[in-house]
Amino acid sequence: MLRVSYGELLAQLKQSFEALGYNLGEYDSAATCVLSLELWGFGGLGLLEAALPSLELHKQWAPAVTYESNALILDCFQGSALFGLIPSIELIYVKARQHGLSRATLVNCTEPEFVLPLLMQVCQRGYCASVRWPSADDPESLRWVVLEGDVTGVRVDSKIWQASEPLDETLCIEVAKSGVDFSPDHSSSEFPGLSLQGHWGNAELQALFEERYMSSVTIDPWLWGRLQDLGRQVLVSATEKSRSGAGAE
């Protein structure tokens, strides 16, 4: 495994995503999302590795947004949540600001975890969020992350619940002003027989984040090489004339 610095990886991710055809706002945000997930222990680099083949094949567009029963539905058309979701997440935030609470579901989405960093940014405006999604490998396993934040930062609580029957393959988001309790309602028919399988509290996750943030990031050399190969696509071939464009005498 290769060790790279936080800043070095961020710069490389931005350049690689730029090479995929995304604009400044999109590639800045996507790079931050990958790194943020990695630092928080949600495996951002692994998710990126899974998403890369598809990302290289075709550009991801913003999801189609519809509004049904007081909830937003974001259809990603089998695309990754890495790109195109910032306006949609901002829309969820604006609706929470207007109505106190807003709900959204993300459907037909790969790597839905990438919405977490976007929601972290929203929560730093004094909001809290609940995000839950079934595991891609095990539809009876439900990941449930609660975020709460303010200008000083964000607090993260992550649990894995085991359900007694397969859950819908959607990612559900709720955003509200800070202070709302987003614990699962066990009496709800939505969560039949949930039992807690794993819990990573804020203190544990913050410690992990701090440790990773202040040291190097470990990355698979293959992925690093792939990102570098991609990034080279934004570079322009050198010629004698181009050298004069940098001031050669």
Binding site: S237, A238, G245
Partner: peptide, 20 residues
């Protein structure tokens, strides 16, 4: 403004006649 493949050196080009 563009980045050259030579150490990613930033360079200036002319839209009318330069590639990149």
């Amino acid at each position: 403004w563009y980045r050259s493949e030579e150490k990613m050196e930033p360079r200036l080009g002319d839209r009318a006649c330069d590639a990149g």
